[in-house]
Design a protein around this nucleic acid. Structure first.
Lengths: 90, 90, 90, 90
DNA sequence: AACGTTGAAATAGTTC
DNA sequence: GAACTATTTCAACGTT
């Protein structure tokens, strides 16, 4: 007796509950990550920069270069000083 | 013609400047909104609650009748109360 | 001690690596969830609707009874129907 | 007769409606901006990079340098090659 | 005035 | 590859 409105109710319920369980675990991990960031902040690190670093570590070197070349190109097209030079020369 | 490194510089500049202009206007409106909230607060209203009311009124407008039948079916299959009906207009 | 340019490098590395590990686990869970959806889809369920159901069930749980009295008051002041009551438990 | 439940209803309504009007205009501008980006995309520009450029133009030169110095510092602390060099040398 | 909290904007990912 | 959804990031607000 597991049909409600033509739907295999038990089957559906099982799927939904499995997903909900996994999402709970996922949310818990997200909370953990937030905590680590908070701890890092408490130790004086700049979390925004940390996020950038982590993103960079995840990206392929190739992607990074591609993006930077394009950014540079657009900046020059607009007559801006390329940002890449800023940090280099001090 | 104005190519910088293969980029149609004038075209790009035009897009960028149009966007920047629009964003300025948008920022000005945001400032106006903040002002109104401040004034309301000065008159003794609770701005947090006001925000909730405004959100509710917006949700009211954005009618959520979409796919209601099927959604309803699935909800019953899971033994949930069907979500509050559009209720207003029928 | 491990200072690079005034930065506690070891400390930073530890934070970054902890985060990266947690994000890996999180990504693995996301993959699991996708799998379950795929399986459900293979069983003939409409995953888009399933997502809506799951969202609804989550909203149900997150009880919105907060500040209800005052909110209600403001709503009546504006001639709105008061938002659907928590309804379940009274 | 403008008190409902002790609230100066007319006053409140006025505030709420002013805000709603302003938010409508703001939403319209957001739509305009999206349109311009879409048009730019249609002309072959990379909108993600455009957004970066616009952000750079908005930031003070000082802020840009500060962020980049810090990013560089963190990267070196982690033994990464500084990303700023990537685009320069090809 | 820094902190956490919340809400909006932007980016990434998925589906068709 | 276009549209939709979900996640992530960023900015504003109130709070302490």
């Amino acid at each position: 007796m597991s049909d409600v409105g033509g739907i295999a109710a038990e089957r559906l319920r099982s799927f939904v509950e499995r997903i909900e369980r996994l999402e709970e675990e996922k949310a818990a991990l997200a909370a953990d990550i937030r905590e680590v960031f908070a701890e890092a902040k408490g130790s004086g690190f700049d979390t925004k920069i940390m996020r950038q670093v982590i993103k960079l570590r995840k990206m392929d070197r190739a992607d990074v270069e591609e993006q930077e070349t394009l950014l540079d190109l657009y900046c020059r097209a607009l007559g801006m000083r390329e940002p890449e030079k800023a940090a280099a020369d001090d």
